[in-house]
């Protein structure tokens, strides 16, 4: 099957990152729950402050994206927010975000849920809307304050962050979309029931049938349908629930470490779920040069992957300094002890 391509040339007009200030070191989790005797997957994860949630983080990432796009919020014709931690079960995050950005009222707005793929799914929706000619400007956001059950291995990595992308016409784009592939199947590797606070996961079942099956299939399909090889790309960004999975998947696709390392942030901020692969993409766009290509594959449990191929335009170097670099959010950090973390994230019943 050929890759999906827009009906007219489109791309990313602006991108924005947000990572909260607080960090919890994995060694602190291991100290509290495992007597310090556990293999920790990453160094630390980003933790939202007590007054933050997916909405507030989405707004800051989106404001950064609009700043880089050089447009006002009122030009947005769609605002889509992907998250598995929408603050309301019923009441869209997206209308709050749109109001804060000055978007609408004549606009589309909706919340998207697809585990860690919710943000890239929103991006695909924006691509479809603009690529079809139905609208000229759409915003896609991935934002999460992910929660792992205390003492569960997810608690090491379940982090907080947001990334936003303004999709529009090619002549104003900082990166052009060349094509995409989306790949889904019914795979119950990870889920959370409606009234539950914490998810359940399938342990090692999340690996081969989950992450690898979908990321590799979507990635291979996109390379093959575009007639490209990994050597055509300067960067590859994959969903990053831990450092091992994306490194192994990228290697299996034929990429080299220097292609994936710039976009691999999980060791310093954890798995930010719907923002995870998208934040990797912002980090790469912070450094990519005109003409360089970026290969992107997300993954969401349940399960599916979106693979996109982008090429950077000469506008990127002029726009990237209009908002804080992803690296500057990563550098801004305040370590928490486990007690403060538990308090911030509502894990202590009052």
């Amino acid at each position: 099957m050929p890759a999906m391509r827009p009906s007219r040339p489109i791309g990313i007009l602006g991108y924005g990152a947000y990572i909260p200030r607080y960090r919890l070191q994995a060694s602190e989790v291991a100290r509290v729950w495992h007597g310090g005797q556990d293999h920790v997957p990453i160094a630390q994860k980003a933790v939202a402050g007590p007054d933050e949630d997916a909405i507030t983080m989405a707004v800051e990432a989106a404001r950064n994206a609009l700043a880089r796009a050089g447009i006002a919020g009122e030009r947005l014709q769609a605002v889509w927010v992907g998250s598995e931690s929408h603050p309301y079960a019923v009441k869209p995050s997206s209308t709050i975000v749109a109001e804060a950005l000055g978007a609408g009222p004549l606009a589309l707005a909706a919340d998207v849920e697809f585990a860690c793929k919710a943000g890239s799914e929103a991006l695909q929706m924006a691509v479809a809307l603009v690529g079809s000619g139905m609208a000229d400007c759409a915003l896609a956001i991935g934002a999460d304050t992910a929660q792992g059950r205390p003492a569960d291995e997810l608690e090491y990595t379940a982090g907080s962050g947001a990334a936003a992308f303004v999709v529009g016409l090619a002549d104003e784009a900082v990166a052009l979309l060349e094509g995409s592939v989306s790949y889904v199947s019914d795979t119950p590797d990870f889920f959370r029931r409606g009234q539950e606070h914490y998810p359940r996961h399938g342990g090692r079942f999340t690996g081969e049938p989950g992450y690898f099956a979908h990321v590799l299939a979507a990635g291979r399909e996109l390379l093959s349908s575009l007639g490209r090889s990994p050597a055509d790309y300067a960067y590859v960004v994959l969903h990053q629930p831990n450092p091992k999975f994306p490194a192994r998947a990228a290697a299996e696709l034929g990429f080299r470490p220097e292609q994936w390392q710039p976009g691999l942030l999980v060791d310093r901020i954890g798995n930010t779920y719907a923002a995870s692969s998208l934040l990797g993409l912002t980090a790469v766009l912070d450094r990519a040069e005109p003409g360089e290509r970026v290969f992107f594959v997300s993954f969401g449990s349940g399960a599916g992957s979106d693979a996109l191929s982008l090429v950077v335009t000469e506008k990127l170097p002029l726009r990237r300094h209009q908002a804080p670099a992803t690296a500057s959010y990563i550098a801004r950090q305040q370590l928490l002890d486990y007690a403060t973390y538990a308090r911030f994230r509502g894990k202590i019943a009052l």
Partner: peptide, 10 residues
């Protein structure tokens, strides 16, 4: 001290 406005939960 220089500060900037952000949207947060009240």
């Amino acid at each position: 001290m220089p500060v900037e406005c952000v949207l947060r939960r009240w």
